[in-house]
């Protein structure tokens, strides 16, 4: 005769095993769904015969908060707006590759890029010369982001600022005529990218290449933290 307490322990263990098996099965299913979504290779555009071009991408790195120019070869359409969109799609897709220094989730990112010609300032001095090269008209780029890109973007000051600077820097390298950049989300103004970086302001399109320096000791003191007025202690 098996004692009652042993039977209780036995069935408790059996129940625990069943629960763990169910939990494991559920986890496997979730992981499978996630991987399937990442590997969605459905063709969404007809193939075209286009030669690849050399482009420069402003690539972000979370580890040192830097933006570095990176040469790449991409096949781009001729229309400037489509070209800008394809370029940004390529840039942002590189961030979803494994081992990216600025990891973002994959998926649609840029819906449209509108290039708006801006008239020069009315009081700007105009120099007319016979052999002068035509001055390119300055442009405003309006980048219309996909809302799912905004929803999936990691939340944080640094990561959001790097994404914005990377987009602006890449546009600046490829389209020198672009002087300003604005952002929309699904065609509407949006306050921030993921809670931090301002999307309502107009950004100047400039070279965003940067390598932040580490903090420097003030020149007048050998040790900036030797103030005795605080009880803060350093390990």
């Amino acid at each position: 005769m098996i004692p009652r307490y042993q039977r209780i322990i036995f069935w408790s263990l059996v129940g625990g095993i069943a629960l763990m098996a169910a939990f494991l099965l559920h986890g496997c299913q979730q992981a499978h769904k996630r991987l399937t979504a990442l590997n969605d290779a459905t063709p969404i555009a007809a193939p075209t015969n286009t030669n690849t071009e050399d482009v420069t991408l402003a690539v972000a790195n979370d580890a040192d908060a830097s933006i570095s120019p990176n040469a790449d070869q991409v096949a781009l359409p001729q229309d400037p707006s489509l070209r800008a969109r394809a370029l940004l799609d390529h840039l942002l897709s590189t961030y979803s590759l494994p081992g990216s220094a600025h990891p973002l989730q994959s998926g649609p990112a840029v819906d449209d890029v509108f290039l708006v010609n801006q008239s020069p300032a009315p009081n700007a001095a105009v120099v007319i010369s016979d052999n002068a090269a035509p001055v390119p008209q300055s442009q405003l780029a309006i980048v219309n982001l996909h809302d799912s890109f905004v929803d999936r973007h990691p939340s944080g000051i640094l990561t959001e600022a790097l994404t914005i600077q990377s987009i602006i820097g890449t546009l600046h390298f490829a389209f020198p005529a672009i002087k300003q950049v604005r952002f929309l989300v699904n065609g509407q103004p949006h306050d921030t990218l993921a809670g931090h970086a301002d999307l309502l302001r107009t950004y100047p399109a400039a070279d965003t290449t940067s390598h932040p320096r580490p903090p420097q000791l003030p020149p007048d003191t050998p040790d900036a933290t030797t103030d005795t007025s605080t009880d803060a202690t350093h390990p």
Partner: peptide, 10 residues
């Protein structure tokens, strides 16, 4: 570890 950077953060 510390990083000094700039951004447009409201």
């Amino acid at each position: 570890p510390v990083l000094l950077t700039q951004g447009s953060i409201p």
